[in-house]
Structure formats: structure tokens, C-alpha cells
């Protein structure tokens, strides 16, 4: 009976071992497939930004680097930016990725970009590969949009209004539809969201909160944004309005210890007492050395 059990256990163990080996070989194959020819895969992200004063096209390159396969930005990679239509592909420029893995192209009127059939712009961003990394490509399209911010106050109810227009092929400003606009106020470390609304006939509104602190005059910066839109990319407009609560200058009445320009008195006294205690003894020892010297002269006499 025991022998039969042993054979059974050995058979099971052998089976598990074989299955494990097959599984490991598959995992190994998978890793090799991911890492063709020893080159790493480049992950590319493309973003389109439309600000009031400039328009940018940005590529962010990253790869799994090092033993831990941590996703990290890759710098010094040449990134080609192309303006594409159905019939043409024009190289705009080549930009090297920076330490954040970013290559940013500032789009100017001098580039005379060709529009696509929808009246927008299409781009292809390409990294052609090198000794370490495989090639990577990303397509992105965006239509030209602008946002205007205005402020309305009726019976002490304050409202922010945003109007968004799309620039058509013939230069006409067409009110934008089917897009959401988010409103923010920039804080010290991040953006404070104050509302979100959908555009109707190119217009949307949100109520303005009355409790936001502004600068000493009550001025606040308000941002209106279309974020990560498949059609328009990222669009941003900003305006300043004195609707914030005017901040009183901060007056520090008492000493704040280590953060203050003056040290706390207890610290000054402690330091003086400690240093005096040590140095009085040092001075005494110097006197002792002098007395040794003096005593030698007396002994000679």
C-alpha cells in the first residue's frame, strides 16, 4: 500500500514538475517576444495643447528600464514630428527628448500646417528606433478651438461664462457643441476645481463660489479647460477677476522659534551658558600651562 502511495506521489510530483517547466518556458518565450532582439519597447504618449498665446504638440517617451523593469522616462531620443494629410506627409522638425522623456514642438503660423478633411490638423510622431529601443509611432489629430471667459453678476449671484468656438476651414468661428468645460482656480500646489458644464450653442456657465480667498486686492485667476478631448486635445483660457476675498497681510505677533529670523531667547541663553562653561575651563587650563612655565623659571632662580 505504502509503495503504491509513493509511486502515486512520485507520479504527481513529476507531472507538476513537467507542467511547471512548460509554464516557465512559455513565460520565458513571452518575455523574449516582448523584448525583440534585446531592444526595449518605447511607450509613447502624444498630447495637443491649445493655449491663448501658443499651441504645442508634445510627445512623452518612456520605457521599462533596469532590473526592476520600472517605467521611466527616456531622454536623448530623436523624435520626428510630421504634419500629415491623406496625400502628404511633411517633416516639421526633429526634437530630442529631455530628462522627463518629453519632446515638445511649438506650432507656429510660419509652419503653414496643412488641414485634414475635417478642418483640423493631423500629426504623426515617430521615433525610428536605435540600438537600445524599438521604433514607436503615434498619430494625433485636433481641431482648432478657442475659449473666451466672461463674468456676469446679477443680484449678487456671480456666474462665470465660457464661450467656445471652432475655427472652420473658411475662417468662420463656429460655436462648439458636445464638449465639457472645467473651471479651476490655481492654488499654491494644485488646481482647485470650481465647476464643470457642458457646452450648448458654444456657451456654458457655472456659479462662482463666494468664499475663495484671493490676493490682497481679491484678485483670482480663473481657468477654463477642455481636457483630453479626442477632437480638440487640451484647450485652456484664463482670466483674472477680483471676486476673491481680499486677504489681510499675515502679521506674526510672536516669535515662531526656529522659523523666525531671531533665535528664541532660551536657546541663546542655553548656548551662552554651555559655551561659557566649557570655555572658562579651557581658559583655566591655559592658565595652568602658563603657571607650569612660570614655575619652571622660579625653580631655576
Amino acid at each position: 500500500m505504502k509503495k503504491a502511495m509513493k509511486i502515486f506521489i512520485l507520479y504527481k510530483s513529476g507531472k507538476i514538475l513537467v507542467l511547471t517547466l512548460i509554464l516557465v518556458s512559455f513565460i520565458d518565450f513571452e518575455i523574449k517576444a516582448q523584448n525583440q532582439g534585446g531592444k526595449e519597447r518605447i511607450y509613447m504618449k502624444a498630447e495637443f495643447f491649445q493655449y491663448e498665446d501658443k499651441t504645442e504638440l508634445k510627445a512623452v517617451l518612456s520605457a521599462r528600464i533596469g532590473e526592476k523593469r520600472k517605467m521611466l522616462p527616456v531622454e536623448f531620443l530623436p523624435v520626428n514630428f510630421y504634419n500629415v494629410t491623406d496625400t502628404s506627409e511633411i517633416l516639421l522638425t526633429t526634437i530630442s527628448s529631455d530628462e522627463k522623456g518629453e519632446a515638445t514642438l511649438l506650432l507656429t503660423e510660419e509652419m503653414k500646417l496643412a488641414r485634414n478633411d475635417e478642418g483640423g490638423y493631423s500629426f504623426e510622431i515617430r521615433f525610428d528606433g536605435d540600438d537600445k529601443f524599438r521604433k514607436a509611432t503615434k498619430d494625433i489629430s485636433a481641431r482648432e478651438v478657442s475659449i473666451e471667459i466672461s463674468f456676469i453678476e446679477i443680484d449678487s449671484i456671480r456666474t462665470i461664462q465660457a464661450k467656445a468656438f471652432e475655427s472652420g476651414i473658411d475662417g468662420l468661428q463656429i460655436p462648439l457643441e458636445e464638449a465639457d468645460i472645467k473651471f479651476y482656480v490655481p492654488g499654491s500646489f494644485s488646481l482647485y476645481a470650481i465647476g464643470e458644464a457642458s457646452l450648448e450653442n458654444g456657451i456654458c456657465e457655472v456659479n462662482f463660489p463666494v468664499t475663495l480667498p484671493g490676493d490682497s486686492l481679491g484678485n483670482l485667476t480663473i481657468l477654463a479647460r477642455i481636457e483630453d478631448s479626442d477632437d480638440f486635445g487640451n484647450v485652456e483660457a484664463r482670466a483674472v477677476k477680483d471676486w476673491g476675498l481680499a486677504r489681510e497681510p499675515v502679521i506674526i505677533e510672536s516669535n515662531r522659534g526656529l522659523g523666525d529670523t531671531d533665535a528664541p531667547l532660551w536657546m541663546v541663553y542655553t548656548l551662552l551658558v554651555l559655551l561659557s562653561a566649557v570655555w572658562i575651563h579651557y581658559i583655566y587650563v591655559f592658565v595652568v600651562i602658563y603657571m607650569i612655565k612660570k614655575d619652571a623659571k622660579v625653580s631655576k632662580v
Binding site: 566649557v278 583655566y284 587650563v285 595652568v288 614655575d295
Partner: peptide, 28 residues
């Protein structure tokens, strides 16, 4: 050697100096 002549007084002075420094150097 600061003219040290190993007189009784000098020995006492050295001893006093080292004792003071031994005491002060520990908390320091």
C-alpha cells in the same frame, strides 16, 4: 614641553589640568 621640570607643583598643575579636561570632555 613649556619648561616642565617635574617639580611637585608642576606635577600637581598637570594633574589638575588633565582632571578638569577629563571631566569637561565627557559631557562635551
Amino acid at each position: 614641553a613649556v619648561s616642565y621640570q617635574d617639580t611637585e607643583r608642576q606635577r600637581n598643575l598637570i594633574h589638575r589640568g588633565i582632571t578638569i579636561m577629563s571631566i569637561i570632555i565627557i559631557p562635551l
